[in-house]
Design a protein around this nucleic acid. Structure first.
Length: 421
DNA sequence: TCTGGGGTCCTAGGACCC
DNA sequence: TCTGGGGTCCTAGGACCC
């Protein structure tokens, strides 16, 4: 049976939200991302900025070089964006309850059968865009097709504020002239392998045999590309997919050799990850340490624990032990971070929300307390309403403030948004 | 140009067991 | 003396995506 899959993508989401809330920024090039002069990239930029060739993931320095002086630079406020995203997703549920958000600004909906209620696919698409406009006052681009790949490519066809429907009969004609990089999995590394053979478009890829593609890209990847080139892809939309891992990492404004600062940063990451895990009802058994040295050389080390945990001290101790076991010496560190994954069977958030966070609801006052002996169930000082800052965080903030004082404001990027006293 | 942060999934090798 | 095949788990790295 042919399904009808709808993909919706909010146009320049972060930038559009900033311009919505700051009328004085409308019509100007606007960049959401790292501070100019800092060590980061563009997260999103307004369409006015895109005219200068600026795009997501471009190093901020390069963006500054290209953009005119009147450009507005803002730091991401993820909490605000997440809230708007939730509003959008909730509104779209009224169109179809079979919805799978894939990121903060994108979702797939299975709208199979809605034609009887609403009308042709175009009418369903218009309905989706209207819901977004009414809810958050933003435009979205919508694509509709028989599977996720086609729906997604259709939404990219006509941006911003576009609506493209690709019926099954026209899938191949739609796909054939597109550059081969539109296929999922043909990126920076893999695409050149095919270009080396003189291939440019999806039609060119379709000329290769399954065996040839499997030899070139590996059995799994080769098969997937072979199918995608023929318009065949996943058409299931998974409701309530739960996450597989939680991580926190940070790039220092300047490479760090001081072990104390690495320790404090790792402790901060452990607290953040543990906090998120407990509030999501997760306990994980695999701890990952991530470290990136000067020159961008990146390593990961993992350890599988005997017992699942969401305790920040366990995460920190495990990660620190991994770091010491790495024997990397005193090389300048660019980035450090920590992750938790491999949830205890049957205990993820979808099944047992908040199973592990009950102990955190006591309302006890941890502020300024020594949190080393709170309890064994995962509660620590970093919970209690999040308002009091932990001693660890205070120390980290002091260190980061010192760096700010040396390198100027705005250079410190710490992932996510949080309440600060 | 000099590369964020948060993710997902895959591969490949080695250990270990039957 | 030399040497199996399969399954599972763990680990490191990498490609890719938004």
């Amino acid at each position: 049976m042919t399904r009808l899959i709808l993909h919706l993508d909010l146009d320049a989401f972060f930038a559009a939200l900033e311009q919505r809330d700051h009328p004085e920024w409308r019509g100007l090039p606007l960049v959401v991302g790292a501070a100019p002069g800092g060590r980061g990239v563009v997260a999103t930029c307004s369409y006015e900025a895109r005219r200068y060739g600026v795009h997501s993931a471009m190093p901020i320095g390069e963006a500054v070089r290209r953009l005119p002086p009147e450009t507005v630079y803002v730091r991401p406020q993820m909490a605000r964006y997440a809230e708007a995203s939730r509003q959008v997703m909730t509104a779209l549920e009224r169109l179809s309850p079979v919805i799978e958000p894939v990121s903060v600004d994108e979702a797939f909906l299975d709208v199979t059968g809605l034609e009887r209620l609403i009308g042709p696919p175009e009418a369903i698409g218009r309905q989706a865009k209207m819901l977004v406009q009414e809810t958050v006052g933003l435009t979205a681009s919508v694509g509709i097709g028989p599977n996720r790949l086609i729906a997604k490519l259709a939404s990219e066809r006509d941006k911003p504020d576009g609506l493209t429907v690709v019926p099954s009969e026209t899938v191949q004609a739609f796909l054939d002239p597109l550059p081969l990089t539109v296929l999922r999995g043909l990126g920076r590394r893999t695409a050149p392998k095919l270009r080396a053979l003189g291939l440019e478009t999806v039609a060119d890829v379709r000329a290769l045999s399954l065996e040839h593609l499997r030899r070139l890209l590996g059995a799994h990847q080769g098969t997937r590309i072979y199918q995608q080139a023929r318009g065949l892809a996943e058409d299931r939309v998974e409701v309530g997919r739960s996450r597989q891992s939680i991580s926190k990492e940070t790039t220092f404004p300047e490479d760090v050799t001081d072990p104390a600062l690495l320790r404090e940063t790792l402790r901060w990451a452990a607290q953040e990850v543990a906090y998120l895990a407990r509030h999501g009802g997760y306990q994980g058994t695999v701890v990952t340490l991530k470290i990136r040295f000067r020159g961008f050389e990146t390593h990961t080390r993992t350890q599988t624990l005997r017992m699942p945990t969401a305790d920040d001290r366990t995460l920190f101790r495990t990660a620190w032990a991994l770091l010491e076991a790495g024997r990397w010496g005193a090389r300048p560190v660019r980035l450090i971070g920590l992750g938790l994954s491999a949830w205890a069977q049957g205990l993820d958030a979808a099944v047992q929300p908040d199973l592990f966070s009950g102990a955190n609801r006591s309302g006890a006052d941890w502020s300024g307390a020594n949190c080393s002996d709170v309890n064994r169930s995962g509660a620590t000082c970093s919970d209690a309403n999040r308002a009091p800052v932990t001693p660890t965080e205070t120390r980290l903030n002091e260190t980061l403030d010192a760096i700010r004082a040396r390198f100027g404001p705005g250079v410190i990027q710490r992932g996510g948004q949080r309440r600060r006293p």
